[in-house]
Amino acid sequence: MKPRDAVSLISKIREKTNRYIISEMAKYGVDDIAISHGDIIFALFHSPRLTMADIAKRIDKDKSTVTALVDKLVRLGYVTKERDSVDSRVVYVALTPRGEELKPVFETISQQMLEVFYFDISDQEKEELLRILMKIHHNF
């Protein structure tokens, strides 16, 4: 396999994964958010209150992109924004009850996706794949 073929394959896997997630979310009636919105919601499942800067770091997006994504999530009722009482430049984001309702949906879809992803792959192959992916990640 040529290096260019590997890049193309990685791109195709990412595209298929995104399509899978969107399709599964639609089955649960969640069709108003994109993958990038899901990244923010997922981050908030692990830390119930984050600053915009923290979200930007966690999902590896610039602050202006995160602001636009969070603003849409606010309009849709999934999150709230609140300014810090001491430093008004700091904005906190938290899930609303509607956003919290997505947790079991996200968990189910994540589990299903992992089952598809690792179908017919041995534990040894999983470890090797993870090791190689970590190396690639660190290269950047």
Rank of each mutant, 00 (worst) to 15 (best):
V91M: 02
Q112K: 15
T17W: 14
S88I: 12
V66E: 01
I10L: 14
M1C: 06
V66A: 03
L50K: 09
G29C: 14
T17E: 13
E128I: 10
D84H: 02
E125K: 04
I33Y: 13
M25D: 10
M134V: 13
M52C: 03
K2N: 00
D120N: 06
D39I: 07
F140A: 07
V90N: 08
E107S: 12
I13P: 11
E100S: 06
V7Y: 12
L95T: 11
A43H: 02
L114P: 05
V79Y: 01
K2E: 06
S36T: 06
R98D: 11
T108A: 13
D60E: 09
K57I: 10
D31G: 14
M25K: 03
K126F: 05
S8F: 03
I40C: 05
E125Y: 04
D84Q: 04
K126Y: 07
T108S: 10
L69V: 09
L102E: 02
I136S: 09
R58Q: 15
H137T: 11
F119P: 08
V116F: 09
L9I: 07
R14P: 02
Y92S: 03
R83P: 06
E100T: 04
R131E: 13
D5V: 10
R58K: 15
I109D: 01
D5R: 08
F119C: 04
F140S: 09
R89H: 13
I109K: 00
D87N: 03
H138G: 02
V90T: 15
A6M: 14
E100K: 03
L102W: 11
N18S: 12
K103E: 15
Y28L: 07
K16N: 13
Y78R: 04
I21R: 01
P48L: 12
T108V: 10
K61E: 13
R83D: 08
I21E: 06
Y92R: 00
H138A: 12
G77E: 09
L73P: 08
P104V: 11
K12A: 05
I59A: 00
L130D: 15
V70Q: 00
F42H: 03
I109M: 05
V116S: 01
M1E: 05
E115Q: 15
E107V: 03
V30S: 10
Q111T: 15
T51A: 04
F140Q: 10
L114R: 14
I33K: 09
F42R: 08
G77C: 05
R4P: 04
L114A: 09
K126Q: 07
D39F: 04
L130I: 06
A6C: 02
V70F: 04
I136F: 12
I55G: 05
A34R: 06
E127C: 07
A94G: 05
R131Q: 14
E101K: 01
K12Y: 04
Y78W: 08
E107G: 08
K81C: 00
D5W: 01
V66F: 14
A56Q: 08
I109G: 01
A26V: 13
R75T: 09
H137M: 10
D123F: 12
H37G: 08
H46V: 11
R58I: 14
L133T: 10
F140T: 02
I13D: 06
I21L: 08
D32E: 08
T80Y: 07
K27D: 11
K72E: 15
I35P: 03
M113A: 14
I55F: 08
L73I: 12
A26F: 15
F106L: 04
